[in-house]
Nucleic acid binder design. Structure first.
Lengths: 337, 337
DNA sequence: TCCCGTTGCGAAAACGTTATCGATAACGAT
DNA sequence: ATCGTTATCGATAACGTTTTCGCAACGGGA
């Protein structure tokens, strides 16, 4: 608001008695400046505490030495990826810029367009929906919604994880299992549903389609669906939610209804966000190695911005992490198997 | 690398048959464009999927509608604050940009200088060390290293938290208590140490200065110190670490040495990062409401960028969260009290 | 002495946008 | 018809950098 007069290249130049061009060369270590002037200019830079303006530099220059990680929002899932991406970028010479570009449809394309080329030299996209991004910079996608595409991609074994989780519930003796699905048009959500159905089919257990709903990963929708399902006369004895956030929402509802978890209803999630273990009842869930995925994506991006080529698709393993939210159904004989 | 030709304002202008000035007005909803041309231009914008370049806009314009959160790195502590800041900024009309500016001394000033004014309209600084920042934009500090200063500040009751944690150990019967301190030149570290010493003094328990060390919050240093202290013939029966990261490092060492936690040694941390509850032995720790602190800082920043004034200093309460890493000392009679 | 290569430096043109301000047209009132 | 007012719109100058390119000074060989 007040004219605090940020120190700029021209100020340094004036005080050092050289041109802005020369100062720029010193800042960027370009060739063509004598040792003497270089030292003198550097002194002034230090004195004034000059730090170049990123916008201006990026606008004119070709590269900024900054990498971006573009997310829809900083929810737990993205935050874990971010931690991993950061460790992956440490000591790489690049700074990291994380951008949360609102939730409207197409945020990835918008974010990318606004930043790419001038602010960042490359980007990691977290769960992007639209991918036909023809920007000049390298891009890596984590868990894209339409599956591995033209972009180098990091994801995890969604099918296998869901299959294993469902098997776990079946092994415990559950037969009436509800499924809180993600969106059908998203790859991860679809594969998790496929895994669930495949495991049920393999066990010869029919699926009550009234118990298989979409939640779009929205906690509110999940809570609502859970409430109506648990109010049924023949309520399900177990719930498999397609991600932890919805699983935790379901748990809240169940506990609020006075039900015991896992006594009255078992709950399994997907992702293993940090909140899962801190839940009122520590959540049994399918673990994705989120930090490792973030680090891997960042390292792929690094090889790309450095001119190399990287794997087109890296798939990480998922593992079932059994905690306290699952147990055999109460009023049932031990597993028939 | 290839000339993928990002679509720019001029492209939209050419196709829509108007000047760039007009397109800019449409984009920013400025007054002075007829309904007709507005609709036509908007159509072209949608067709081409134009999204303004942040650098250029920020460079020339006064405001960018982007707020920054500047951190040293995306470790768990900062990530929690980030989650909170994000929820605090949702539906505010501002986008969020998180910047990790390397770890060298003075990263806050450098980051701020590079971004402020042109890229972001205001910033939240996470544990800044140097504060004399005369940038033109509003700034809020979270847990600054030198305590509340000229900047509006959010922190928590470090003294009280440390006092309570120490009391907890004393109540359990511990007398030989080690302290893994932060840096003396940091406000939070100093206050936590003061709290520890005050509680010990109040209980009339002398402090063995050999058991009070600095770790600079560095896990490696903490591990090293822990190893030597636990190797002592009369090793401490409890460790109070000034943050969770060092507490977890200490726990790792203890377990590696074949000691039982809390059987042989109790451990208390500070912060309550998500990792604390997921530790091999869930960590007893002093909880700072990190997400709430992030949200509060962001809401203060929002009132400032909107021209209002906010509290100069908000202090949040800390609460002791007892988990499994603390118990009475093994070879000792029950507390004398 | 002349020529030419090297070195050090600065002038000036970009980069893509926003803001100012003048020009033009349209229109109602005199 | 003339004038003043308002509504639209476009030229154009910034914003703070990087990069290209030209100019001058200097030296060394012929």
């Amino acid at each position: 608001m007040e004219p605090v007069a940020r120190v700029k290249l021209a100020d340094v130049a004036r005080i050092a008695g050289v041109s802005v061009a020369t100062v720029s060369k010193v800042v960027n270590g370009r060739y063509g400046v004598s040792k003497d002037t270089m030292a003198r200019v550097q002194g002034v830079i230090d004195d004034l505490g000059y730090a170049g303006n990123l916008s201006a530099a990026g606008l004119r220059g070709q590269r900024t030495n900054v990498l971006g990680i573009l997310v829809g929002g900083f929810e737990p899932f993205a935050a874990e990826l971010l931690k991993g991406a950061w460790t992956g970028a440490e000591n790489s010479g690049y700074e990291l810029l994380a951008h949360s570009g609102g939730h409207g449809h197409g945020w990835e394309r918008r974010s990318l367009a606004r930043l790419a080329g001038t602010l960042i030299d490359g980007a990691v996209l977290v769960t992007p929906t639209v991918l036909n991004t023809a920007t000049g910079v390298p891009v890596v996608a984590i868990d894209p919604h339409y599956g591995p595409s033209s972009l180098p991609t990091v994801d995890s074994d969604n099918f296998g994880g869901a299959y294993t989780a469902t098997e776990h519930l079946l092994d415990l003796g559950h037969r009436r299992i509800a499924f809180l699905g993600g969106r059908h048009d998203l790859d991860s959500g679809r594969r998790r549903e496929e895994g669930f159905r495949a495991a049920m089919k393999a066990a010869g257990v029919p699926i009550d389609e009234d118990l298989a709903v979409e939640t779009s990963y929205e906690p509110d929708l999940a809570a609502h669906a859970t409430e109506s399902m648990l109010s049924l006369p023949d309520r399900p004895t177990a719930i498999f939610a397609a991600n932890d956030t919805t699983a935790l929402a379901a748990m809240d509802v169940a506990l609020d209804m006075g039900l015991s978890v896992p006594g009255d209803v078992s709950i399994v999630g997907f992702d293993d966000i940090p909140e899962a273990v801190a839940a009122p009842v520590p959540l049994t869930t399918v673990r994705q190695p989120l930090q490792a995925m973030g680090a891997e994506a960042m390292s792929m991006l690094l090889t790309m911005v450095r001119g190399g080529t990287c794997e087109q698709h890296v798939r990480m393993d998922t593992t079932l992490t059994v905690r306290d939210s699952t147990a055999p159904p109460a009023s049932t004989a031990p597993p028939a198997s």
